[in-house]
Write a protein that binds this DNA or RNA. Structure first.
Length: 328
DNA sequence: AGAGTGGCCTGTAGGC
DNA sequence: TGCCTACAGGCCACTC
């Protein structure tokens, strides 16, 4: 499942191939993979087509219109280095060379137009794969870009997504350089500008269970179900412990545990339980071997021997050791 | 504002 | 063998 470490592995893998590369062709095979993409209206401003988004099925006509808009506007774009915040990943547009135009004279400098980015969210099962132009199809490829890089030549960037919770989109950058759709996302704990004091204060002000708080992307980003369970185990905290009862010391310990588990997962290439998370070359990570609680219901805790408990929580599952993660 | 819930999606596993 | 159901869960829209 792509959480922060998995998305970071993808970002780092993409960087050398896409930075400075230009889009020479694009093919949207399934417009449902564009649910975050808002087509431009006649005035050049993003306009809702009244469909898509979340909880609404895209009609065929609206889907075709979105696909056409995306394919048209991405053509000729040259990417700057990829950026990540939490689980969102984006490729800022350095410039756009209008198709068919002759030479650099036709280049629209990004400074002249509002900043734009190709935004990606992998959702549950999204993958960004780098492939040779003639490589065979991977399963569930929804959107395909052909890019040209000064060093690496022609490459394919394939967005594959089995469950379609993920999406690509062209999105305008705010003044802070963050895509509009990701502006509400908090910085993540690996961001040098993450404000520990503010996070800890907000965490300790909320009465909700601490697991719910970790999954709140406006409080801290990049944490999903796996790493929330793992960080709570490391900090010896029951997932339903209220934020309000956390001591300053315990809250700081939790943040430290979160950073530790992220760093270790990153070093091990991320977590792959099945074929749904892979790096840009289609390879699995091996952090799943280091998992202590997630998916280990009924098995012994490596720390105290207690039996790991699995409980329903927010339409998913929580895993914890009832012996060394006591509710207070 | 925060809490809580439903819907989006498809492949896989397990029961019968 | 094949049909059915449950499950995986990040995010957003929605209600209260």
């Amino acid at each position: 499942m792509p959480e922060l470490p998995e998305v970071e592995v993808v970002r780092a893998g993409l960087a050398p191939a896409v930075t400075g590369a230009r889009v020479i062709a694009a093919e949207v095979r399934d417009p449902r993979a564009l649910k975050r993409h808002l087509p431009l209206g006649g005035d050049g401003a993003p306009s809702a087509d009244g469909e898509g988004g979340h909880g609404v099925t895209l009609s065929d006509a609206a889907g075709r219109a979105r696909a056409a808009d995306f394919e048209r506007r991405i053509l000729g774009i040259r990417f700057a280095a990829p950026v990540r915040r939490g689980k969102f990943l984006w490729l800022p547009v350095a410039e756009r060379v209008a198709p068919g135009a002759n030479g650099a004279a036709a280049a629209e400098r990004a400074a002249a137009a509002p900043g734009l980015a190709l935004l990606a969210h992998l959702g549950m099962s999204g993958q960004l794969l780098l492939r040779a132009p003639e490589a065979a199809d991977d399963r569930h490829v929804r959107i395909r870009l052909w890019i040209e890089h000064a060093e690496h030549g022609e490459l394919r960037v394939d967005f594959a997504d089995q469950r379609l919770f993920g999406s690509l989109a062209l999105d305008a950058l705010t003044a802070e350089g963050v895509p509009g759709q990701a502006r509400h996302i908090a910085r993540d704990p690996l961001d040098p500008r993450f404000d520990d004091a503010v996070f800890l204060q907000r965490l300790r002000a909320r009465p909700s269970g601490v697991k719910r708080l970790l999954l709140d992307q406006t409080l801290v980003s990049g944490v999903g179900n796996i790493y929330a369970d793992e960080a709570l185990w490391r900090a010896r905290l029951h997932p339903e412990t209220s934020g309000r009862v956390l001591s300053a010391r315990k809250a700081a310990e939790l943040l430290g545990a979160l950073r530790d588990v992220f760093a270790q997962a990153l070093a091990e290439g991320g977590t792959s339980f099945d074929a749904q998370y892979v790096n840009v070359n289609g390879q699995a990570g091996y952090f799943s071997r280091s998992i202590e609680v997630y998916g280990r219901g009924g098995k012994p805790c490596s720390r105290c021997g207690g039996l790991i408990k699995r409980v329903a929580f927010m339409n998913r599952s929580s895993h914890f050791c009832p012996v060394c993660q006591r509710k207070r």
